[in-house]
Structures are given as C-alpha cells and as structure tokens.
Design a protein around this nucleic acid. Sequence first.
DNA 1: CCCGGGACGGTAAGCGCTTTCTACTGGGGG
DNA 2: CCCCCAGTAGAAAGCGCTTACCGTCCCGGG
Lengths: 350, 350
Amino acid sequence: MAVTLADVAVRAGVSAATVSRVLNGNYPVAGATRNRVLQAVEELEYVVNGPASALAAATSDLVGVLVNDIADPFFGIMASAVQSEIGEPVADRPGPKLAVVCNTGGSPERELTFLTLLQRQRAASVVLTGGALEDQSHRAALIGRLGRLEAAGARVVLCGRPPLTDTDFPAVTFDNRAGARQLTEHLLGLGHRRIGYLAGPQARTTTRHRLEGHRAALTAAGLGGDASRLTVRGSYDRSAGYYGALELLDREPGLTAIAAANDTVALGACAALRERGVRIPEDVSVTGFDDLPFAVDATPALTTVRLPLHEAGVHAGRLALGRDEAPEGGVLVCPGELRVRGSTAPPRDA
Amino acid sequence: MAVTLADVAVRAGVSAATVSRVLNGNYPVAGATRNRVLQAVEELEYVVNGPASALAAATSDLVGVLVNDIADPFFGIMASAVQSEIGEPVADRPGPKLAVVCNTGGSPERELTFLTLLQRQRAASVVLTGGALEDQSHRAALIGRLGRLEAAGARVVLCGRPPLTDTDFPAVTFDNRAGARQLTEHLLGLGHRRIGYLAGPQARTTTRHRLEGHRAALTAAGLGGDASRLTVRGSYDRSAGYYGALELLDREPGLTAIAAANDTVALGACAALRERGVRIPEDVSVTGFDDLPFAVDATPALTTVRLPLHEAGVHAGRLALGRDEAPEGGVLVCPGELRVRGSTAPPRDA
DNA sequence: CCCGGGACGGTAAGCGCTTTCTACTGGGGG
DNA sequence: CCCCCAGTAGAAAGCGCTTACCGTCCCGGG
C-alpha cells in the first residue's frame, strides 16, 4: 500500500541504504545518484515512516511541552514560542521537530502521566512550564521521571519555573519575587498603606514567590503586621479575583489598593470593584502580574509586571534542541519589568 | 540499556508475545499470567517503545492540531479542548493520544509542510482549525495532502472552518455570516447608519463570511451603498484595529459605530478611539466577534458574538478519535450567540 | 472412554528504516 | 607499474514490537 524506502530504491536503481543516506544527508553520496534518488522520491510522493526511523535510529523528532492549560495565554505564548523555535528547520542536521502539547491542568498526576507518555514516544526533549507544586513526594516522583527521561537521551528544560534543586536540568525562570516586590513598592511609593493581596493556589512556587515579594516590600516599609489578614487565596482565574476582591473589601473597608497574583485575577477584581461602585484607581488601585496582551486594554489599563514569556519560550526551545548551551549555573533568570499604567494612583487620603 | 519487552518477558517467565498481549489487552491472558507480567513491568519500570509499536502495528497515538497561532486564545481554547478530549484514556481500546500542535502562522506553505510531517509520524488524526485560505491552487494542494493522509489511515477533521467542497471530511464550523449579520443588525436597531467595518485579511473564508454577514445586514436596511467606502482591511490583530479605526475616522468623521472582525481588532479600535478622545459608546459604538475571555473585561465590556470554541474543540476531538459519528452531511454548524454589552448604545443623534 | 473445541501461550515472520562492515572503483605517489 | 586510500555503494543485521499461525491442555458431550 504505502510507498517505502525500498520502493524508492528500486525506482532509483540503488540500494535502500543509499536512499536513506540521501534523505539523511549524513554520508557522502555522489551528485548524480542523489539526484536520481530525489527524483524517485518526488515521483513516488514518498514520505518517510517516522516511527520506523525513530525505531532504527533510536531518536524521534517530538518535543513535549507541558503546560497547565494551553488556552491560557500565559502558557500559550510560551508554547507558541517553543513551537516556533523547534519547528524551524535549522541548518543543523535533524529536521524540524514537532511540539506535543500536554495540558496538565495543574494536576501532579497528569504531569507524571504525560511524562511517561512522552518517554514512551522517545521524545527528543521535554519542556516543563508553569509553577511547580511544592510537595515533597511529588517532587521526588517528578525528579525520578525526569531522570529516566534524561537517561533515555531526552533533554529536559524547565521554563517559567524555578530550577529543581539537586538536579541540573537547565531552567529559564522568572523573577517572581522581585517583580511582586516592585509592584508593591510602587503602591507604597504612591502612598498606599492598606494593600490587599489576592494570592494564587497553595503549594505552588509561583504563588509563594510572588507573595514573598509582596510581603518583603510591606515588611521593609514596616507594614508586615497586617499582611496575612489582607491576603486572600484563590486559583489563578478571574472568578478567584472577583470573589477575592469582595472578600477583601469586607475584611478591610479602608483598603486603598489590591495587588493580584496575576492579570487575570486582577481583572476579576476590577469587575468586582466596579460592581460595588468602587472607582479604579480613584478609590482603589489594582495591580496585576504577567502583562498578558489584554492587560493594556482593560480600562483603566492594568499596572503590572511584564514577563518575557515569548523570549523565555524561545530560549527554552533552543535549549531543548541543544542549540544553545545551558546558561552558567544552569539557570537563566528573566527579570520582570514594571509597567505602570492607569490602574494605580495615589490613594485619595494621601 | 533501556528495558525492552523481552526483558519483561524473561522476568515474568513468559514469551514476549504474552507481554505484548497483556499490555494491549486485546487477547485473552490468564489472570495469574497477567499479574506476573504486570509485576515484572512494575519492577523493571518498563515503558513501551512507542515508535516500535507504531511501526509494528502501523498506528500511532499522535493527533495533529493545526492552528494559526497557539498563543491566540481563539486557537488556544479550541486546541485545549481537543487536547483534553483526546488525552482522556477512554474505556475504548487505545490509550490516551497526544496532541501535536502546529503553528502555521496562517501560512499555506507551513500548513502543507506540517501535514507532511504529521503524515510522516503516521498521525492517527489531524484537526485543522482556523479560516481557510481561498486560493485554488492551495486548496488543491491541501486536498491532495489531506487525501493522502486519509489514505494512510488518518482521520481528518475540520474545526472552526468551513467544509472543503468536494471532500467529505467532517467539519465543525461556525456560522460567521449569521453572527456578523446579527451584530450589524443590532447596531442598525440601535439607530446607527454610518457603520465602519474593520475586516480581516483577504482571501480567508472567515474574513469573507463575516464581511458578507455585515453587508447583508446593511443591504437589507438599504445601506449597501456606503459599505465598501467604510470597510478597512487588516490582519486579525490589535494594531490592525488601531490603525484601521483611525483610518475609518478620517474617511468618515460622522461615523457612529465600528464593527470589527474580531475582539482583538475591536480592542485595538477602542484604544485608537480613546486616544482621539472619542467616547465609547456615547460617540461611537464598537462590536467585536468571538467573545474571547477578555472581551467582558474591556471597559466598556465588548458587545460581540460568542462562538462555542470549547464545545467545537471537544466535538472535533471526539470526531478525531472516531468516538462520535460524523454529523449528517458531515458538517456541524455552531451558531454564534449575540452578547450585548456596554460598548454599544444608540448614536447621539438618534 | 474418546474426541472436538475453547482457552492460552509460544514461535517466528515481519513492520520500514539505520548503520556498521565490506566491496569496488579510480587515481596518485612510491 | 603497483599499492593504497579516498570516495561510494551494497549487503545484512538488527531496532522493539505485533500478530498470524500453531501447539497444548483440559473440559464436556457423545
């Protein structure tokens, strides 16, 4: 049924070995022979059998990309960058690689399951994005899986998450702590003193780092005491911001600012504030985090910290291909950049 | 180095065939034997070699998903739905499938290239999303590629794009025409008469259908004459909306409404209007299309048409697995739903 | 008491490709 | 003038798995 290498070989009057060599270009083949082969390939519309070559060569051109949810632009942007980077047929030997996107939904089990599935596919590399779960047993299981992947020849890269201690997988991470700190310092600088914080889900590194940055700024300003009373936890979605903001308003009617764990949460908070008739930023200032594309289109535009998601993805993609050397220490820290926009202003009583 | 089926067989004291049968569960194996095998698998941490089984069984568990850009929520949401659907280990025979996401960037060549790469991987199915390019030669090439994929045993599904005439690939499509028409009728109903339109790129079915819907509404209202003067073309991104809106304002200062090809373009337009000091909706009403998550958080919230992106993706995923039968006629049309929000209001002179 | 057949399990032949290892050629240096 | 090597091409041995195709073994019916 399907055309095989052998068919091409017969058509071109050469051996299968030669056809393989022409196609892979890793062995000298005389010009005339090569042309005959190429022509036969063309005429027969031959398409290599990927699994067969993967089996024989013990490599595949699949790169796994684990994300929480590809529908979320935070992950979408990174994944897009990774994909574009690895899909580009470099002058380098192997052809373009394909990105296998895996939605973990933040579930540790699914994360492990997908890693196994990727190992089964003999993925050439795996890019892990998103905040890590801070759970010792999961951490151990994860390291085990990644170790086996690496042992099987896969390249493992962490993107947008902190390095895994005791391992030396290259990592491209964001400085969430510093970013959060800048944001809160910005609010403090404007004169805010009663600042609510909408934190992400428990046991996530991203959540913890951002919260720590926020607290560090407060503490430095001598406002550490109120911090936990003015912190509400929720997931990283819009409704968490909505209900979280209402909760904060109830807890502390004198609130003049809300710092959200990310832009999506911030928009939810804005919606809640508007419904309550609270003006932004006149009555309450709001900050986000990530600077996703829509942050600038909110009204008022969201003050936030821009994370170089695309750049990080590109870098992770290059590391995954082995095109770039791992950064010194194995970790590349990408700083966030404060973007001051309309959603923050001095408090009224300032 | 790596553990193979044979190793497991030895360990369990059975033949490789038996191990394979236990793992695939498609042939009777006595309970005791099965358990011994399973235990050996466990102890050896055996992971099937995907390429090898793909080669032997002539099938893979890869599903290709072609999108314009996975960073765009429009595609991200559909891809996410497809992925979740196919990743679920159904009670059905084959294990969970992996989604290979391919960013075409809207380029026809890349589209074809990716299809070839997917065929090389012997993908079990391919889901094509996004508007189709209206170009005869590309259409022919595309049908050729898809036909070969199908001949190779892959299931081809179109999602969020019109069916390919003369083929019978199942399709899940959006009624862009009706949606656009509703939007413009809504504006007309409010009393608008000078309505600008920000169209998408040329030669895309999505662009054409939405524009046709808009024009149909205008024509029905006896306003067809001005239509082309008040139409500006651009890509589907924010800056196209920004510059397009400025252009429209210049062409027709008396404009009272702008209908954009999608939400992203609409937000760009809003930004331009705000900069010009034009109030929304008091001076100019604006409508989007798609109802992406951020549409509701714009201020004012965007009047738009909600497209069931997630549902369409789920459905496409099921079709790709062969879990659902193709709809009668092969095409499932998903209607859009008008969402009237704050960005539209009667014109001032109404 | 014998035989047919169902339930299991093993044997072995590939699946289509890569990659040694071997073979052959022609030309230039000794 | 012969030998050796660079340059090419082929033969063949797998890569790890699936799956006919056969044997066994044991049961119940005749």
